[in-house]
């Protein structure tokens, strides 16, 4: 599976990464090489194999429905790039 520049741009947009047009070619080449490595998987038949999401066959534990968290807003917003009046600020969201 070879990737072209336009696919690289599409994927970069999905991942919200900026890729310069000059870079796109090289990135496409690198990713194509990696996909070639990955495609070795296709060499075997797995039609009857169940996927394995976690190495261990265990199930989800449940948490009691209790409020355990206090308000730490001020402390948490100290590390924010931009916050005002308790809100995180971002460039205007357009709907």
């Amino acid at each position: 599976m070879a990737l072209d520049k336009s696919e690289v741009e599409k994927i970069a947009h999905l991942a919200r990464l900026h890729i310069d047009t000059e870079e796109a070619e090289e990135v496409a080449g690198r990713i194509t090489d990696i996909l070639a490595l990955i495609d070795q998987m296709q060499s075997i038949d797995t039609a009857t194999t169940e996927p394995l999401a976690h190495p261990l066959d265990v199930v989800q534990r449940l948490r009691a429905d209790e409020v355990t968290e206090a308000n730490h807003r001020d402390e948490l917003q100290e590390i924010a790039p931009s916050a005002q009046e308790g809100l995180y600020l971002v460039p205007r969201v357009i709907e």
Binding site: A15, I38, M41, A53
Partner: peptide
């Protein structure tokens, strides 16, 4: 992102999980 994108999930992610098993 590519491996999970529309149309590739089965061929990549699901396949990889099967090989993982």
């Amino acid at each position: 992102t590519y491996a999970l994108s529309a149309g590739f999930y089965d061929a990549y992610y699901r396949k990889a999980q099967k090989i993982r098993r």
